[in-house]
């Protein structure tokens, strides 16, 4: 796998990050060396092996669906970078 400028740009777009030219160069170098290290896993035969997804063997613990209010409006808005008395304020989403 070769990580080139295009891949970096595509990943940055997906991850909602932006990088300057110097940062891109060093990311390219790091990602290439780390991902080629990841490829060591290809040495392992995994035919007929299931992926391990859940780390617990306890299955679906269910509870009653009770409505609770744990968080007040004030608490929810406490850490907002911008807000008014009732809502989070965000930059304009649509141009018109």
């Amino acid at each position: 796998m070769d990580i080139n400028n295009e891949t970096i740009d595509r990943l940055a777009e997906l991850a909602k990050l932006e990088f300057n030219t110097t940062e891109k160069e060093s990311l390219k170098k790091d990602l290439n060396s780390i991902i080629s290290y990841f490829e060591k896993l290809n040495e392992v035969n995994t035919d007929n092996v299931e992926p391990l997804i859940f780390m617990t063997d306890e299955f679906n613990r269910l509870r009653e669906d009770v409505v609770l209010q744990n968080t007040s409006k004030q608490e929810a808005l406490l850490n907002a970078p911008a807000k008014d008395s009732d809502y989070f304020r965000v930059p304009k989403v649509l141009d018109k």
């Binding site: 991902i35 896993l41 290809n42 995994t46 092996v49």
Partner: peptide, 13 residues
Amino acid sequence: YYTKAQKVRNLVK
């Protein structure tokens, strides 16, 4: 990459 690593994780376990 991702699924492969989950499979090898299973083998390690």
